[in-house]
Amino acid sequence: MSDDDYLLAALRIAAGSDPIPARVSADARAVYGLRLPGAVTAVPVGPPPHVGPGRRPPSGTRSGGSGTRSGGDGDPLSGFGADAIGVGGVGRRLGGGGRHGDGAPRLLRFAAGGVTIDVEVTIGDTHIDLAGQVRPAPGDGSRVEIRTPHISKIRFPSETGEFATTGLPHGWLSIVCHRPGLPPVATRWQCLRP
């Protein structure tokens, strides 16, 4: 971008010929509600070396039923609270059977404060599925929160720290591991689109 490009873009906006979409400003204001006081931010450290397409889905992940609930009060998650497709469902997608979009899962690894969060993301035409693992396994009373700017899903990780969910909208995503008595660990926000 040259200074001239910027100046012309500024002129266009000031002329009203390129107004900022109301949605952009509304989303910016809403980001304030995504603060996580005291959280440790886990930064991307590259893809996990031990997984690849066709990796086995996590097993034993508890999700659905009492293991799934909506995020904060008033969170517009009601439509998602009962989606709890079992891990087998996600696993079939990740394993190839139900794959959609370009189908290739994206592998992401985040780390901070001695915690590693591995995530395998499948970006479909209409939504995102993911499976992941927190290491070391966060233990009893922990929960994994999968956040988008507008919805949040809670999963209780398995004994080995695995979790999964499906049906997330395209766009921004962050995963937070809440552990009793310890600061939450939140991955940096990632933009995931087809």
Binding site: M1, Y6, A9, A10
Partner: peptide, 21 residues
């Protein structure tokens, strides 16, 4: 911020992602 993103030649959807980022 919108002007900077648009000055890169990004379309509205991509510019919105850059600003939100």
């Amino acid at each position: 911020m919108w002007a900077v993103a648009r000055a890169f030649g990004l379309g509205p959807a991509d510019a919105a992602d850059a600003v939100q980022a």
